[in-house]
Design a protein around this nucleic acid. Structure first.
Lengths: 147, 147
DNA sequence: CATAGTTGATAATTATAAATATCAACTATT
DNA sequence: AATAGTTGATATTTATAATTATCAACTATG
């Protein structure tokens, strides 16, 4: 892992610091989380912390909402099209029993999947969430899986 | 072609008849068209005509807007993820010079593509538009192209 | 232990997307 | 030729998504 990557991933901003950076309210940040757009780091005390990667991600989401005029439910649906099953290399059998694969229109990281290959892994640490979910780049992901 | 198919495709409803069937105004229908969600049949006089398939399609779109709370721009972006290049079997070379393939976030049928494989074909008659663009089923299309 | 910041939940507000209305000019059909 | 319906364009209205405010209880940190 490069220095840059670990810098991007380190949860350092409190919710109020993140809100200030993003020029939005803390309530909006919690709303995005409730909607499943973001998965902030949580301390044992349940306090949220955001990394620079989180800030970048949220800026991207806000651009989709404010400039591209895509509603939050639209973004969720777009996220649901990320081919995580190809990224993490699910087997045919694993796909068959995965509720997300079989019809969810929510992001995979909002889907309870401790029955499948993801097990108890924290979605925040999964490459699907951390590296393959730029909200404005899902089409490229789709192209990359084509036979 | 089966009898059912040709029945579905036949442009028989005027815009006012279609609006009545769908319980919306004619203005809304023209708006959907301007936004690129639908491509109604046009007579030589420029008058629009809608088939039963069009009605079904619009009902599906309205369900996404009103029930799933996906904005029109969201639906456009979702449509842009339909892998038309796989459906119509574009070659690698054709994909390289296709502006839609290379980055458009609008439906392929709103993209001027008389430079590529589609040529001067009417999008309304293309299977991508007529058979592979159920707005609530794009995820299944994506799954079907995976290697 | 005191201050500043956090938590979740509910309510209120604001911004704007979606839908409709209006208009004059044009077209279809009887 | 007359009526009903169409066209596109602009303006207005309505519905509601997105955001913010408020609250009391709880937590972090100097």
């Amino acid at each position: 892992m490069t220095k840059t990557d670990s810098t991007l991933d380190k949860p350092i901003y409190t919710i109020s610091a993140a809100a200030k950076l993003l020029n939005i309210s803390v309530h909006t940040l919690r709303m995005y989380e409730r909607e499943g757009l973001i998965v902030p780091f949580k301390k044992e005390s349940n306090q949220r912390l955001y990394s620079q990667g989180d800030i970048d991600r949220i800026n991207c989401i806000r651009n989709e909402i404010n400039e591209s005029k895509i509603s939050i439910n639209g973004i969720k649906t777009i996220y649901s099209m990320i081919p995580c099953w190809d990224i993490v290399k699910c087997t045919k059998k694993e796909r068959e029993k995965c509720g997300f694969f079989n019809g969810s229109n929510l992001p995979c990281w909002t889907y309870n999947h401790n029955q499948n290959i993801c097990g108890t892994k924290t979605c925040r640490d999964c490459i699907v969430y951390s590296q393959y979910s730029e909200c404005n780049n899902v089409k490229e992901l789709i192209k990359s899986i084509a036979r």
